[in-house]
Design a protein around this nucleic acid. Structure first.
Lengths: 158, 158
DNA sequence: ATTATTATTGAGAATCTATTGCAATAATAA
DNA sequence: TTATTATTGCAATAGATTCTCAATAATAAT
């Protein structure tokens, strides 16, 4: 099932109605694999002459989250950013504090942390969000820092 | 060094000026050990008749972050939430999707993940943010049938 | 097909968080 | 004590998101 099909199913089961506007939004979102935010999505559609009002975009996003197509990843620059869930394996993020670059990486050890916490507290853990931050290689080079020293030096921040 | 002292030092070294308003803000923040947000902080101070303008609170927060007293923890309900850094060991959060409860826990394994990522990419990792979500014991009980399965499924009774 | 029902749309107003400009004030240094 | 200038409070502003409402259109019923 592709994105549109998943959404159609969700819409039907929820007693909502599908619309061309919503399909256009979904199509645009899943055209690339990148993170996105409302404003750039809005402008992209506007440039393509298939303009959709911002209100509709804002109203569609919770439906896409609810139907498991996308999720919130982080709030930055005063607004929320989203990423794909469908067709996009779960992963963690590294954020470079120098250039703002976001790098995705997979990390199974987090699942062990989940299990451990779940067992010790008697809770049900359904998911996680892990973000590392620091400086990427390019930024370290640019700053003239000695990488190895800083790594050793700063691994334990607080 | 307590919070106020740390802040006085930071202010002096940065060529800024300390003020009674800022000390009142710091005092109120560190009165409890809880997370806080600008609005509740503002209202607390207002109720205590030591009213401080919101602008001053907003202008003080970056200084408190810069001086290592507090940090951003999560964006929720349309605004940022903060927590203590000074006097508060680094920790991760569990958020109950049922009741919204936040539980803090310590987890050293994340440091291994940091190191591993740092080594494999040649990046400098300076910190992390880990959030688990799911359902706490109370919410699992409340919900009935589904829960028993999940509890039995995921909990190891010592 | 036609009609009835009502969810959805777009445009703009309203709301909410956060930032900024400005005149008055007050913290520091001289 | 005086001069300098950071800080304050207030109001204005900016930006993101939500809401209002009349018009439209997707579905269900006929």
């Amino acid at each position: 099932m592709n994105e549109i099909e998943v959404f159609r199913k969700y819409v039907k089961e929820s007693g909502l109605r599908n619309t061309p506007e919503r399909e256009v939004i979904i199509e645009e979102i899943f055209l690339t694999h990148d993170h996105f935010d409302v404003d750039t999505l809005y402008l992209c559609l506007k440039n393509k002459k298939c303009s959709i009002s911002k209100a509709s975009i804002y109203r569609t996003i919770p439906l896409l989250i609810e139907s498991g197509l996308i999720k919130e990843v982080f709030f930055e620059d005063g607004h929320m950013h989203y990423e794909h869930v469908l067709g996009h394996e779960h992963h963690c993020h590294f954020r470079c504090l120098g250039c703002g670059k976001i790098i995705e990486f997979k990390q199974d050890e987090v699942l062990d942390i989940e299990k451990k916490f779940s067992r010790s507290h008697g809770f049900e853990v359904t998911g996680h969000k892990l973000e590392l931050f620091g400086y990427c290689r390019e930024c370290l080079k640019k700053e003239g820092k000695d990488c190895k020293v800083s790594i050793v030096d700063r691994v334990n921040p607080n």
